[in-house]
Design a protein around this nucleic acid. Structure first.
Lengths: 135, 135
DNA sequence: TGTAATGATACTATAACAGTATCTTTATGT
DNA sequence: ACATAAAGATACTGTTATAGTATCATTACA
């Protein structure tokens, strides 16, 4: 079970790296060297971040990526959503259908409590807050 | 992402059913009819519960299953552990190896906080508590 | 001793995750 | 102009966990 999958993890690391680098523009080449990630996979991740407006990309020679918004505004929950879909700890399906007791199911209620806390907690995390606490 | 997988879910439903039935012994046949589950899969789940000492099985004609312990003592966390392994929200591996920043990694610390809460919460849930709150 | 139950075990299908490969487009420095 | 170094787009592949199926062996009751 993984609250955070590999591509989300890569995204977080890459974004932190870009912020810390203090450069105008950061290329995949530099990120690969700095973070020891598989290049094609990282590229795919960065392209997605660009599409979703987290990064801004520059093509051509000396191209690369820049944050499209301030690190305070990049929430981990948003990144999870981009790469993994909506945060949820359960589907609560039963034989591929929604659980027939969906309304009354006690188990669901209890897991929902845990889930709500998780979402609350993850919503409070931004790239900026990760970097701050790190120092 | 699923905190609870199908076999854990089936186990919980089956255990609740057995308690509610008030019978000396409950057969797979009855459980399948009562809970609309795929028979072979449920059988595998029940066999596992027997091996792990949650249920006690009786072979032969009129055989079936009985709780091996009181519902107050059957924790959801134990069931999750049986069918899914130790509860954890992250592996925190990086390229198949443990994340190189494992000691200092801020992200890991934050996810650990959420994880600890989840474990705490799930540890407080037993079959008995599910049945009680249900009424 | 037939039969209705569980035990044990091996096999299959599907989907998500992780990663690779390749070709296209674009901008820049010379 | 044009070679080159960057990102864009897209299709493919490998691995693992989940979810289930199928089959034969064993046991106990009536």
């Amino acid at each position: 079970m993984n609250l955070i999958t590999r591509n989300t993890d890569y995204a977080i690391r890459a974004l932190c790296y870009i912020v810390k680098s203090n450069k105008d523009i950061v290329s995949v080449k530099e990120l690969v060297e700095g973070l020891k990630m598989p290049r094609p996979f990282l590229r795919k991740v960065l392209q997605e971040l660009n599409k979703k407006g987290i990064l801004r990309s520059y093509k051509g020679k000396n191209g690369g990526f820049v944050l499209a918004t301030r690190p305070e505004n990049i929430y981990i929950s948003k990144l999870i959503e981009i790469f993994q879909g909506p945060i949820k700890l359960q589907e609560h399906t039963f034989k591929k259908k929604i659980c027939p007791e969906i309304k009354s199911c006690v188990l669901k209620k209890k897991i929902d409590e845990v889930e709500n806390y998780t979402i609350l907690k993850v919503n409070s995390l931004s790239i900026a807050s990760l970097l701050k606490t790190g120092k």
